[in-house]
Design a protein around this nucleic acid. Structure first.
Lengths: 228, 228
DNA sequence: CGCGGCTTTGATGTTCATCAAGTAAAGTGG
DNA sequence: CCACTTTACTTGATGAACATCAAAGCCGCG
């Protein structure tokens, strides 16, 4: 049997679907949908019914939710290979968070019913799923606890380093979030985020050029993130 | 085959091990260990190697971790039927949090290797595990986000209502946490927790008698929890 | 060009942590 | 069982951290 489906070349295959037989992958591939989103597009709306299992192929998205009218809270930034719908999917039938693209993104989705079927049949797949979920929630929980335990400066420093180290893996990058979104991430006001950034700039810890950030003194910033 | 093992009567069987065949349950039962802990006993230490899958049969425990020297942070309170080791167990080989009994507790444990084996073989069991994990992490994440987004009064009110509604299911209860532990839970100082409790008492929202708390005006407290 | 959204800075008041000090409760050793 | 020590609890005073309000500059876009 000749497999023509593009899932075969997909990098995700090796990290997640390695437990699949070739014919399973073929089946999978036929069912899956690939969708493109532009920066700012809403991929999932809080309250939407969960019908598909969704993962990020490329780009960058934010998971966020409405805590109260006019107030949004960012839960986490998801990278490619992250399973966007790792939260909630197996515990409720509706999303309790929204997902929005913060860079142009490509998303793959497959009906939940198929994932359930595969999970029931294929122990290795299922265990793979468990491990992935476990890592994803660990990450969110630890990050949430870390952010909670810091003061403003520590939170901002933490976030800048997160972008530099984990997401872009370089000292200079375009911040994909507005000042307001940063505030929503760390639970502070926009004004105070700006003030903190300005302070870091005045102290020569970072350079700012609009959305472009350069980490100038990573070591010092790291101390602030750890003890601020 | 006659099953003599006490797991047969265990309430947990119906919620979790219902996918087991009788002989599997027997196998399971032989392997499992049941341990008693007194209030204050440490069940798991942060950094310990994860060897067993652990769940709470009765009692009440707190999951907590050291954020920095001399500072502890409570992650969540776990109830019976909760799988204490739902975090981390499938993502790392060492616990990144501690577990301590805050009431006399009974804990069951079974080697991780067995759980892995069952998960690989039994799709239903495995899927059951996924759903449980999903619910557990959802709960923690949503709670963590909720706590992060409130002011002091809102946090304290939230916590009091949590004990009253979710944990003890009655308006009068013995608070199993010290004032300091409450502070560690919501990320505030002990002094301010006490001040807030005193304020609630002066406003006749609660009655305090040492560790005994009575929710006197649930409605008002609920508003504070939601909008404070 | 002008409108709306994003960014920035300043002034002001609230919320909260920290320090200090004292009381109550609970454990410890003789 | 009592003196002693330690730990938990409580209240007040002070300053730091932070939100809120106000106002102005900037930019992209119709």
């Amino acid at each position: 049997m000749q497999i023509t489906c593009n899932c075969v070349q997909c990098e995700l295959k090796t990290v997640f679907f390695n437990s699949f037989q070739e014919n399973q992958l073929e089946m999978f591939c036929i069912q899956k949908k690939e969708t493109n989103y532009r920066k700012g597009d809403i991929i999932i709306r809080e309250g939407d019914e969960i019908t598909d299992f969704i993962y990020l192929k490329s780009g960058l998205v934010k998971l966020h939710r409405n805590t109260r009218p006019d107030r949004d809270q960012i839960i986490i930034i998801a990278l490619p290979f992250d399973f966007i719908s790792l939260l909630s999917v197996f515990s409720t039938d509706r999303y309790n968070y929204s997902v929005t693209a913060i860079e142009d993104s490509v998303v793959c989705s497959i009906p939940m019913s198929s994932i359930k079927k595969y999970a029931m049949e294929n122990g290795k797949f299922s265990f793979n799923l468990i491990e992935r979920m476990s890592k994803a929630s660990d990450k969110i929980i630890l990050e949430s606890l870390a952010i909670r335990s810091k003061y403003l400066k520590g939170k901002v420093a933490y976030l800048l380093l997160k972008f530099s180290r984990e997401i872009y893996r370089k000292p200079v990058f375009e911040l994909p979030l507005s000042r307001r979104e940063i505030a929503e991430y760390i639970g502070m006001t926009t004004e105070n985020v700006i003030r903190t950034l300005s302070e870091f700039r005045n102290d020569r810890l970072i350079r700012i050029n609009g959305k472009e950030i350069e980490i100038a003194h990573e070591e010092a910033l790291s101390k602030i993130a750890d003890f601020g």
